[in-house]
Design a protein around this nucleic acid. Structure first.
Lengths: 352, 352
DNA sequence: CTTTTTTGCACAATCGATGGTGCAATGACT
DNA sequence: AGTCATTGCACCATCGATTGTGCAAAAAAG
């Protein structure tokens, strides 16, 4: 009703307008007024004035006073990836439904950047922090602990804080199994025909590689080290690994396990430079789900990690305030080729 | 060095430790100390103490006092999409490099939610806001204006604030042209063979449809209304539209323009339910780039929108403080099938 | 050795909301 | 009428940093 471009109304403004004291106004507007035995009529009046003037609390002031901000942070390695952006989407929804404000930031897999970003978040007095896919979870943990900030690790575990991670071993087993079965349909598969690309020196990669090797050894009888090609988490490095293999062998492996959708992007870069015959018969497994990746012109088995469940569990742990740094496994699911799963987008209303 | 779990140090703590007054400490630590003629030695001492005790400013307090927070907001429709997540990635990088803190939130294309989210951001005294793909940019504008918050529209224009958008008309022309040329390689193309799916009643859709129709009419001589199928921005609705077409015609159109990668997901859902022959010969154009979408088992032309340039321009406009709500067009680029572009991920260091 | 100028800093108000404490007015009860 | 409990609210300190102002002490000028 009022001002255009004017300063925002404060409890002091409403205090003058209503004739009540600022603390009364505050109590009415933050809900603690019953406890303070404010008359219903007074509350009514103040609420009405607040509405008329479009009052909204200054959350910085509230946060300063109460040393809680209503902000919940999610630290991501990167945004630009379906796994993490889907996690961000779930995170936002859950934080909102708890009446808090989500703050999603990425730290580019740089340990120093991670710590610094978290320092910044702490300066805003965030209430809780989800650390997803951190390169150095324990480093971040220390920063949080010093500030007394509750936090959990998601996706990559730390040793010092509770962690919720995908059951990478089981997921990798499922995926490897699926790849092998599918490859056997086309004829016998030698151990040299099945490779793994991507990942690096982190817990998730280790577990996935372990699952891959266990199943491979059990099914194919052998598991040569050369078939494991950890390339880091970069499309460029992954593409180089495919390129190198191709140089050596004149073709790609018949079947392979790709550690993440980021690595799968590396495969795309390789494909862009080579004719279709190069990969007409390959069979791919990717430890991540991407709706378009699932429809590539060769069979792609994918693993869908349940990031929504991870976030839910994360809140449960934070709420329970369990201290021991336990690790919780969340089962992922296998997605056969040519599958379009519904995602968080489907929750949006789009009438038309 | 100090406390584990202790409260964070404040300027008052450092004031006691150093023997200087809080205001001196503040001045030293926020850089305004030269102006205040603080002795170099005093500054040294305070900085050292600050380091030792891991002091970081309480940004809520600072924000409260100075009514600036150092936060810059980006309002997104959704995270879970390469176009927007890539924009988030660029945004983060640019905000960081300006020494501010990015705050990325999504509002699910819900006008009410958009306004509410922005209200919340305003309560945190954010300094600037980028409004990307808002359903109701002018509604958001009013909220911002009332609070005196500087803002720009990205991707979808408003009439009341400066807007930076993709040159949708030109992009659509390029894309349509490319589809037609490619289709003609397989034989003559009738106007009934070229459809457009997706989009709704927004500026971007209008412009894209206009570009599509103009090129189509010029190239194919006609442009029946039935070939335009606005399905909204939802995979499910889009899938239904493909399904409906298929029911009627027993096949998909030979060639079609898909309004966004979200709509392209709808195509994936259709594909999942039908055999390969159904779409063996289709030619697709998608107004968005997705690295996996580019390698689907049929030719997919894509448009890559330059979100990084849009953000850059956005900051330029905010910095220049130009008031007139002008609209700036940013040229997108055409991406031929089977192309793996490098993206923000490639900026990450990943040594190994 | 004064007077003026400069240097170096302390003081105190302020941003907006919160919550403990105290106190007047009202009603209940003896 | 006097005592006591209850109701309804105002007052004030506080969170941590910023900033305008004032004032000694040191340095420069006379």
């Amino acid at each position: 009703m009022t001002g255009i471009g004017k300063k925002k109304a404060t409890i002091y403004d409403l205090s003058i307008l209503s004739g009540a004291s600022p603390s009364t106004v505050s109590a009415v507007l933050n809900g603690s007024w019953r406890k303070r035995r404010i008359k219903e009529a007074t509350a009514q009046l103040i609420r009405q004035l607040a509405n008329e003037h479009g009052y909204t609390a200054n959350l910085q002031a509230r946060g300063l006073r109460s040393s809680r901000s209503g902000l919940v942070g999610l630290l991501l390695p990167v945004h630009d990836n379906r796994y993490f952006s889907s996690m961000a989407q779930s995170f936002e929804a859950q934080v909102r439904s708890r009446g808090q404000c989500p703050l999603v930031v990425s730290a580019c897999r740089d340990p120093e950047e991670e710590r610094q970003v978290v320092e910044t978040l702490i300066s805003y007095s965030i209430d809780e922090l989800f650390i997803a896919g951190a390169t150095d979870p324990d480093g971040v943990h220390k920063v949080c602990e010093k500030a007394g900030l509750k936090h959990v690790n998601i996706d990559l575990p730390g040793t010092l804080a509770p962690s919720i991670i995908s059951d990478n071993y089981e997921g990798a087993r499922m995926l490897t199994q699926a790849i092998i079965e599918r490859a056997l349909e086309d004829g016998p598969l030698s151990p040299d025909d099945l490779y793994l690309f991507g990942g690096r020196n982190d817990h998730a990669s280790h577990e996935r590689i372990r699952g891959f090797r266990d199943v491979k050894r059990a099914s194919l009888g052998a598991d040569p080290d050369v078939c494991i090609q950890p390339t880091g988490y970069s499309p460029a490095m992954t593409a180089r690994a495919f390129e190198a293999f191709y140089e050596d062998h004149g073709k790609l492996p018949r079947a392979f396990f790709v550690n993440s959708s980021i690595n799968l992007e590396g495969l795309m870069r390789f494909l862009a430079l080579h004719p279709h015959e190069t990969f007409a018969d390959i069979i791919v497994g990717c430890y991540d789900y991407d709706p378009f990746g699932s429809f590539l012109p060769f069979p792609v088995f994918m693993i869908r990690q349940d990031s929504d469940a991870m976030i839910t569990k994360g809140f449960a742990i934070l709420d329970a305030d369990r201290r021991p740094p336990t690790t919780h496994l969340v089962r992922p699911s296998l997605v056969p080729p040519r599958t379009a799963l519904i995602g968080p987008l489907d929750a949006l209303k789009d009438i038309e």
